[in-house]
């Protein structure tokens, strides 16, 4: 199957090494990214995020399966990657060249050299004044901004960012996040974003996938994933009796003065009824939607095999 969607993977698999040293970095990965989406790709270190991105960019050859970009297999039709801009594991440059010369080299390599566009991009990422300085003297933040300019050189439809805020201070992260957000909202770019910064992903992305040990363990719209599992804060007395009343049906954690109950908002009446039936006084029940970070950590913990 291959559609015209920005990214489709079919049972994408990548192994490294052989025999007992074989590592299954990506296992039968199936992904679909629709046009205009901002897609978050999450996972702990070593989960297979960067390997997947390298497979999408034709840097790695799959052991089996396919990666399609705009309906074309990237291995057979690498020219389709001209519709893609990317930063993989931080931006890398020829440090002995100036920023402008680096962009010229990249643009000429893609056979799309346009000095005016290079000037405009340098201006856009705030590097116009230091464009003729060698990249060797650039800070990490400046290199990341130059990386964004390099990714945008051929005015791509799809942007793939792998840890674009790596090594940046909070203000640098904010700057890059705002830039990416503008690319999506103002220019309608499709974005595939891998990041450890879950609060940023939550703010930017429409949809996320969580990958662990090479396989996708959760995938869906951010709102759906987070709404599916709400935490209720229940203030009641006595707490022990409340816990006993609810513990057989819901997952309950006791805090000093309240209970944390994993349940949906729709279940609040049933919880209150049950507490009252067990002669527990209920003072307050509030629902708290968990953050993406909490959700991510709970998924990773649940999917981690315990000895």
């Amino acid at each position: 199957m291959s559609t015209g969607n920005p990214i489709v993977t079919e049972n994408l698999t990548k192994h490294f090494g052989r025999g007992h040293k074989r590592i299954e970095a990506v296992k039968a990965l199936n992904l679909v990214l629709l046009p205009g989406q901002v897609y978050g790709f999450l996972g702990p270190n070593g989960a297979g995020k960067t390997t997947t991105i390298r497979l999408l960019l034709g840097l790695l050859h799959p052991t089996s399966g396919h990666a399609y970009v705009y309906g074309k297999d990237v291995q057979r039709h690498p020219e389709v990657l001209r519709r893609v801009g990317a930063i993989v594991e931080g931006a890398s440059f020829y440090n002995f060249l100036t920023a402008r010369r680096n962009l010229e080299v990249f643009a000429r390599t893609a056979n799309r050299y346009d000095p005016a566009r290079i000037d405009a991009l340098l201006e856009q990422v705030g590097l116009a004044e230091r464009a003729n300085q060698r990249v060797k003297g650039y800070s990490t933040g400046m290199k990341q901004r130059l990386g964004l300019a390099a990714a945008l050189l051929s005015d791509p439809d799809l942007l793939i960012f792998d840890e674009p805020t790596n090594g940046l201070d909070p203000s640098g992260m904010h700057e890059i996040r705002e830039f990416i957000r503008r690319l999506a909202t103002e220019q309608g770019k499709t974005i595939f974003l891998s990041s450890h910064l879950l609060s940023e992903v939550e703010q930017i992305c429409d949809r996320v996938a969580i990958i662990q040990r090479g396989a996708i363990v959760r995938e869906g719209a951010v709102g759906d994933l987070l709404d599916a599992k709400t935490t209720l804060r229940v203030e009641a007395s006595p707490l022990d009796a409340a816990r006993a009343a609810l513990g057989d049906r819901w997952h309950v954690t006791t805090n000093t003065t309240w209970l944390s109950v994993e349940a949906t908002r729709d279940e609040i009446p049933a919880i209150v009824r049950r507490l009252v039936q067990h002669n527990v006084d209920v003072y307050q029940v509030t629902s708290q939607r968990q953050s993406l970070e909490e959700y991510f950590l709970s998924v990773v913990e649940a999917e981690t095999p315990h000895a």
Binding site: R54, L57, A86, V88
Partner: peptide, 10 residues
């Protein structure tokens, strides 16, 4: 220089 990753997709 780790620049193949910036060159090959182009």
């Amino acid at each position: 220089w780790q620049t193949w990753k910036s060159i090959i997709p182009r």
